[in-house]
Computed example of a mutant assay.
Amino acid sequence: MQKVLIVEDEKAISGVLHSILSDELTDYEILVAEDGLEAYKLLEKEDFALIISDIKMPKLSGTELLKQALQLKPETTFVMISGHADIDTAVTALKDGAYDFISKPIDINRLITSVRNALDRKNLVQKANTLQKENSQLKKKVSKKYQMIGNSAALSKIQDMIEKVAPSDARVLITGPNGAGKELVAHAIHAQSERSRGPMIEVNCAAIPSELIESELFGHVKGSFTGAIKDKQGKFEQANGGTIFLDEIGDMSLVAQAKVLRALQESRVSPVGSDKEIKVDVRVIAATNKDLKKEIEQGKFREDLYHRLSVIEIYVPALDERKEDIPLLIEYFSQSIADEQGNSAKIFDKKAIEALQNFSWTGNIRELRNVVERLIILGNNPVTSDDVTAFVRK
Rank of each mutant, 00 (worst) to 15 (best):
D386I: 13
H18N: 14
K127A: 12
L309R: 03
F78T: 15
R171I: 01
A287D: 05
K104F: 12
I158N: 01
T384M: 03
Q132T: 10
G250H: 02
G150W: 02
P74S: 09
V16D: 12
I330V: 14
E331W: 01
V115H: 04
D23R: 13
E367K: 03
G241R: 08
A153Y: 02
Y332H: 12
I347R: 09
I326A: 05
E24S: 05
F301Q: 06
L368V: 03
I249W: 03
F359R: 15
A98P: 03
E248G: 07
L261G: 00
E211V: 11
Q335E: 14
K41G: 05
R116N: 13
A39P: 03
V280P: 08
L60D: 10
I81H: 07
V7A: 09
D386T: 15
P105N: 01
K122T: 15
A287C: 01
K11Y: 10
L119E: 15
D88I: 07
N109A: 15
L42T: 00
T77C: 15
D169V: 00
K222G: 07
D325P: 01
G198A: 12
I278Y: 10
G273Q: 11
Q357A: 06
T113R: 10
L264R: 05
L43T: 02
G342P: 08
T362V: 13
V383C: 00
S385W: 05
G250W: 04
G363I: 14
I244N: 07
I149W: 01
I353D: 02
E38H: 13
H84M: 12
I102E: 05
T76V: 15
G198W: 14
A390G: 06
P58K: 06
L328T: 02
L328R: 07
V125N: 07
P271I: 02
L37S: 11
S344M: 00
S336F: 08
A207P: 09
T63S: 13
R366Q: 06
L212V: 10
L94T: 09
V165H: 00
E163L: 12
D231T: 03
H220Y: 09
A93P: 00
L261E: 02
L138R: 09
V269E: 08
V311E: 10
T89F: 04
L368F: 04
S82E: 11
D304V: 12
E211C: 08
N343L: 09
L217F: 02
L155I: 13
G363F: 05
L37V: 10
A39L: 07
W361E: 06
L31F: 11
I112S: 01
I296L: 04
L254W: 06
T362F: 05
D35N: 15
D120T: 14
I337Y: 05
E354S: 14
S215L: 01
V272K: 08
D100Y: 12
N178F: 03
